[in-house]
Nucleic acid binder design. Structure first.
Lengths: 334, 334
DNA sequence: TTGCACAATGGCAACGTTAACATTTGGGCG
DNA sequence: CGCCCAAATGTTAACGTTGCCATTGTGCAA
């Protein structure tokens, strides 16, 4: 019971088992060229000493960390938990680990995410972008560090992946038009949100593609309160029979706002949202919305890095479509 | 433009700058015993070659990884995002990184979390427990691997930290009694949830402490639907003037259930929840609830590991109280 | 002028692992 | 009985970093 040894190495195991360090290493990797009885003796020694392989020694030797870094400017955010679920699942599949880092958003640049990661034990990195980084156009990933951006924008040097925000608006608008609505009103979001802007574009362009001039939009701020106000404002408008809100909180707020003005949903006005973030919080209503597969987004990003595993794979851009979920907040006018 | 060198080491920088490897190392660590002009020359060489320190070499030398592992049986879960925010913040503060791992819950044991972590480059680990692991009583943390459990249970060998679920029920019950309600009805949750059970105990014991025999509880399943059903059931009971639901979704469901039976909230019945998870989703109502500081829970856990930094600190148990947030769903009967 | 202190830098070794190569052992076969 | 092959095991070196100690250079007091 003298001084506790810092850590047990192959050398210690080798000594106890009466074999060479190499044989211990081979046993750890279950090499077929070690006699079963020798293996057993080594294993016994490992158990006795409580040996566990040292990651640093291993990666130093291998030159790989088997780890993917994830850089986030904001940890809290819709869908981040599902994305992480995807990161973890894909990493698991490839025998990789995930290292999570919060990056200070001042300045909001890819460079700051990249330099934050550069000193960490990672083979590649994923950056979750919420806004437009100042250096998006000029950014170059660190040499040897495969970098994947979670964004809808395309980048010449980094692979990108995200939900297809444009397509989701197309789905909603066409769904509403398909139900006989003459136009679709829109509740937007703050202008610095990339995905929100893309949703807005999708709404606008889909209407135009159907020969409809988009009505004036109501600007919201993601909160149910702003949706509530928007609902009250739109309640006055007799041409408004269908409203598409750029997230579920605003959609639900909008419903309550409409109802507070005596307009019924969906009898008088139909409402749809995006994100499927309400879950089952609203017990008496099922909001028509679009469900995204954020887990798949996360998996794609990590697969891209861990799957390549040396063989440098090219830059790819992936948009994953959402699925429209029919609820009971849309009326069929046909 | 010949073969690209795998990675740039101090040796390369030293050669280019015409100094020894040691001087490069000292420059990296900004040692005062290097002449400023030498430092500048070395820095220039580092820039030119794109040098970044190799984590593996460093940790091998130091015997530390400056990383805390987080093991989760379920990534998705109320408050996990806030906890991660806390992990990341505390890690940042100490210059640590966070490695995230999903642990397969079959079997649901601390041992499986521990062995999952053992081969990763971490100095300590945090396990987020949702249920009772089969080996909770017998588990021993890996030697040299400081282990913190996120749970309300106390463990003899591991530090623990969590929200104080008992106290939160006490706060709610005493708040309602203080408003003149004669008793408090309760909507519970599935029995395997540790925190849910603790909330139930808190409700029961606080009532008893006030000389009130707890009424029969209504069992829910965390969903708003179950809260809705519970609300309808409790609407029949004339003695029921105050309801405490063990989460916000059920509380909100309950409100809608009561209203569907013609009972008004808070005029006829008061309702309170826990978790403050509705955010602003409900635009026309502010639910009385308890807000937990999950970020602080996360920070405490990582602080415990990263803060010790060698000096082995003892086992501690921390319960962090929530804060009751007054909304407009409780009526004062006095 | 000599000696000494101190600042600046260099050399060496070791952290734990494993690929590549070297060596030993045993068995089969001519 | 000797030879060769293959299986089993051992030896060496290197991955990149940095603590320790040694060395060199520079200025100043004796």
């Amino acid at each position: 019971m003298a001084a506790v040894k810092k850590s047990v190495s192959v050398k210690d195991v080798a000594r106890l088992a009466g074999v060479s360090e190499q044989t211990v290493s081979r046993t750890v990797h279950d090499s077929p060229s070690v006699r079963p009885e020798t293996k057993e003796r080594v294993r016994a020694a490992m158990r006795e000493l409580g040996y566990r392989p040292n990651f640093a020694g291993r990666s130093l030797r291998r030159g790989k960390f088997k780890t993917v870094g994830v850089a986030m400017f904001n940890i809290t955010g819709t869908g981040n938990l599902d994305r992480m679920e995807g990161f973890a699942a894909a990493a698991d599949k490839h025998g990789y680990a995930i290292t999570l880092t919060k990056v200070d958003g001042h300045p909001y640049t890819l460079e700051s995410a990249s330099s934050r990661m550069s000193a960490l034990p990672v083979d590649g990195m994923v950056v979750i972008m919420n806004r437009m980084p100042a250096d998006f156009g000029t950014f170059e990933p660190l040499p040897g560090m495969q970098t994947v951006l979670v964004t809808m924008l395309e980048h010449p040097l980094c692979s990108t992946v995200d939900n297809d925000q444009f397509d989701c608006s197309r789905q909603v608008v066409e769904y509403l038009l398909g139900r006989g609505h003459k136009t679709v009103h829109f509740i937007s979001c703050p202008e610095r949100s990339l995905s929100g802007m893309r949703r807005e574009e999708g709404w606008r362009e889909t209407l135009r593609a159907h020969g409809i001039e988009p009505p004036r939009l109501v600007r919201g701020d993601w909160t149910a309160q702003s949706g509530y106000a928007a609902g009250q404002a739109l309640a006055e408008d007799p041409t408004c029979t269908a409203i598409y809100a750029s997230n579920d909180a605003m959609a639900y707020g909008c419903i309550r706002g409409l109802e507070s003005c005596g307009r019924r949903v969906p009898e008088d006005v139909s409402v749809a949202g995006v994100d499927d973030s309400l879950g089952d919080i609203v017990p008496d209503r099922r909001l028509t919305t679009v469900r995204f597969d954020n887990k798949r987004v996360g998996m794609w990003a990590v697969d891209k890095i861990a799957g390549a595993d040396g063989g440098a794979s090219g830059v790819e851009h992936m948009l994953i479509p959402g699925v429209l979920v029919e609820g009971d907040t849309v009326r069929d006018l046909r």
